[in-house]
Simulated scan of single mutants.
Amino acid sequence: MYETRERPGDGYRYIPAVFQYSAGVAALPGFRIERVRFADPVPLAAGFARIADHLKGIGRPLSAFCQCELRSPGQFTEQGFRAFNLGYAKVLGEWGILSGTDNPVARSNVCPELSPPAEPGFHAFAYTVPDAGAAPSFATAGSGESTEGKGSYEEQTIALGDTSAAGMLRKAQFVLGEMEGRMQALGGSWAMATAAQVYTVHDIHPFLGEELARRGAARHGVTWQFCRPPVLGLEYEMDVRGLPLERVIPA
């Protein structure tokens, strides 16, 4: 069972994970989480500036920023991923979001197989807003088929290098278990989810019915993003959210 920690002033709680992101966020009573998607990915620096302007425009502090989805040109080596994450986390520190060794912001970062962006950037972001009568809302971070923070990705990867139907099933089962554990900690469930996203370039049809649909992940359909997870060697990733309001804005 995951623990959660609260940020009362910012209206959400989070699951502590690794320095680059939390494992998920949920609105505290009296708040809701809203998601905004850019029509096209916005490069990282410009994206942070657009997010800051958006938050200021609706009267929310920068620290209300609690979740984001990134798009990158291609998979990183573990060293390259760490270097990227240090630059990303530096901005969160400047925004007053980091709490000691905790990074409360949940995140997905995946790599489109076709028409990738020229550089890493924002696909979507989420934040809290006050709402006295809001129903619960949550968003998990993306998880690939590796346990984070317990050694290298390669050491922890399920069915490393195996993209057969059997290997992909093992990967999907592990990731589904991660999603369910995170949702439970956040007070969410498949029944409360409004969207489930799968990121892989491999065929999900062999387990779409027996795993995703049977467990409830396809209650509102499954969005299959033809993308790879961010680190070389990973082949399957998911994230889940239960949010009452989403909008799209021009890039």
Rank of each mutant, 00 (worst) to 15 (best):
E94F: 08
S108C: 10
G87W: 00
L98D: 01
P112I: 09
L98E: 00
G96Q: 12
V91T: 13
Q75P: 01
C68Q: 09
D131V: 15
H123K: 13
N109G: 09
A83S: 09
A135T: 12
F65H: 13
E119S: 12
A132W: 06
F76P: 00
L62Q: 11
L86D: 08
P116W: 05
Q67Y: 14
K90P: 07
E94S: 14
S115G: 15
P136S: 15
V129P: 00
N85R: 07
E94Y: 09
V105N: 04
L70F: 14
P117L: 03
G100V: 04
G74P: 03
C111E: 03
A126I: 08
F122A: 02
T128D: 08
P112G: 05
S108H: 06
L86H: 11
P104W: 09
Q75M: 01
W95M: 07
D131Y: 10
L62G: 15
L70A: 07
H123N: 15
P136I: 14
Q67C: 13
R71S: 13
S108E: 13
N103Y: 02
D102R: 05
G80E: 03
L86R: 13
P136D: 10
G87R: 03
R71W: 14
P116C: 05
E119Q: 10
I97Q: 04
I97M: 05
Q79W: 14
S72C: 15
F76M: 00
F125T: 03
I97C: 05
S63D: 12
L98P: 04
L92F: 07
D131E: 11
W95Y: 08
E78W: 08
P73S: 01
F81V: 05
Q75A: 01
C66K: 02
F81D: 02
P104C: 08
S115K: 15
V110S: 12
A124L: 04
G74R: 10
K90N: 10
P104K: 09
V91K: 04
F122M: 01
W95I: 10
Q79G: 13
L70V: 05
Q75C: 01
P61E: 12
P73V: 02
L86W: 10
P136K: 12
T101N: 12
E94D: 13
F84N: 00
P112R: 10
E78G: 01
F81N: 02
E94C: 11
Q79R: 11
A124N: 02
T101C: 08
Q79K: 08
H123L: 14
R71Q: 10
P130W: 04
Q75H: 01
Q79V: 12
P116S: 06
F76R: 00
K90W: 04
F125Y: 09
L86A: 14
L92N: 06
A89V: 13
W95V: 06
S115T: 14
S115Y: 15
T101R: 12
P136F: 13
L114Y: 14
F84T: 00
C66D: 02
G87K: 04
P136V: 09
G74Y: 05
A118C: 08
L62E: 09
Q67A: 13
K90Q: 11
P104M: 07
G87M: 01
